[in-house]
């Protein structure tokens, strides 16, 4: 190598292992496998989705997991025209913060829409489940827009 040639080399950073979930994330993933979404109740009655073991503000231990709806609204979103090679999605989609009915915090997931012109803050979306679920966030294929029938 010429002494003034710029150095460069491939670098791979990888975490390939299984990790244990703990009781709360474990129950959340169990719910996904059974095609329901669980949140966890805080002392003030609000519900965190996805759930955490501890209250992020007061650090209190949280234990009461509750089911929330499978539909909600888009709080904010961005459009992904060219998914990266290792993205769970291989076609253009939105990534969005989605607040499910019954939840007080938004969940991060994809909105499967034809194009960014369909997306709108406040739009209603609902879960599209994978046919085979295994207890993983990918059990949710994404969220799809829908019109509320009874306005």
């Amino acid at each position: 190598m010429e002494s003034n040639e710029r150095l460069s080399a491939p670098l791979v950073l990888e975490y390939p292992f299984r990790r244990t979930t703990g009781p709360v994330i474990g129950a959340f993933l169990t719910g996904l496998r059974e095609k329901i979404v669980l949140g966890i109740k805080r002392q003030d009655g609000t519900v965190l989705v996805p759930p955490t073991e501890y209250d992020p503000e007061t650090s209190e231990t949280l234990t009461e997991m509750v089911e929330v709806a499978q539909q909600g609204e888009v709080i904010t979103w961005t459009w992904v025209q060219e998914p990266r090679p290792q993205s769970p999605w291989d076609s253009p989609h939105a990534l969005a913060m989605i607040k499910l009915e019954g939840a007080d915090t938004p969940l991060f997931h994809a909105v499967l829409a034809e194009g960014p012109e369909v997306l709108e803050v406040g739009m209603k979306v609902r879960i599209k489940w994978r046919e085979v679920t295994e207890g993983h966030i990918k059990d949710i294929e994404g969220f799809v827009p829908f019109e509320e029938s009874n306005g």
Binding site: L13, P16, R18, R19, T21, A27, L29, T30, Q86, H136
Partner: peptide, 10 residues
């Protein structure tokens, strides 16, 4: 119950 998950990051 689900007790572990694979979320490979590369």
């Amino acid at each position: 119950p689900v007790q572990s998950v694979r979320t490979p990051i590369r």
